[in-house]
């Protein structure tokens, strides 16, 4: 009985530790990788965590206020290697899709958007065949 109880306790401790380790997504690491991909001339303004919680979260959405006469560049990096498995899509105020970083089955690092209309936009991150569901993105602007 004593051995059984010790086994149960050890198993429980292991399960808790394993669950916590699995759920961790070190977005900071991928944030730095994404920052390096930002083209010269673009000033970094925001970073975004892309943590799909091991597939439990299918979509991570952020709201942005973009300004006309400004170019925005988004760059991503993820645990699966580069932008693999990560998709960044921009929607306008009416939630109509404008464009996406996943084109013809190819995962791009991000996109460049020359904004001509000031307003609220929705930046959505989703996963396509991702194994890690983990990454980060950065946004830069240039006038």
């Amino acid at each position: 009985m004593k051995r059984f109880l010790i086994f149960v306790c050890a198993l429980f401790a292991f399960a808790v530790a394993a669950d916590s380790a699995q759920a961790q997504c070190n977005a900071e690491l991928y944030n730095n990788m994404a920052l390096k991909k930002l083209a010269p001339g673009y000033t970094f303004v925001k970073s975004y965590r892309i943590d799909g919680k091991d597939g439990k979260r299918k979509k991570i959405e952020y709201t942005c206020v973009f300004s006309k006469d400004t170019s925005y560049m988004l760059r991503m990096a993820g645990k699966d290697g580069g932008p693999t498995g990560l998709v960044a899509t921009l929607f306008d105020t009416r939630r109509s899709q404008l464009f996406t970083s996943h084109v013809n089955g190819k995962f791009f690092d991000g996109w460049t958007y020359k904004c001509t209309s000031t307003g609220i936009y929705y930046l959505s991150f989703t996963f396509e065949g991702s194994k890690s569901y983990c990454g980060a993105a950065v946004l830069g602007f240039r006038r």
């Binding site: 306008d92 404008l98 970083s101 791009f108 690092d109 996109w111 460049t112 020359k114 001509t116 209309s117």
Partner: peptide, 27 residues
């Protein structure tokens, strides 16, 4: 803030899509 509607022009480059909006907002 008034917005004129339009469709984005998307060009696929090696660095990913480069999108130019054709909508226009005026204040």
């Amino acid at each position: 803030i008034i917005e004129e509607r339009g469709d984005p022009i998307i060009e696929i480059t090696d660095d990913g899509p480069v999108v130019t909006d054709t909508r226009k907002s005026t204040v």
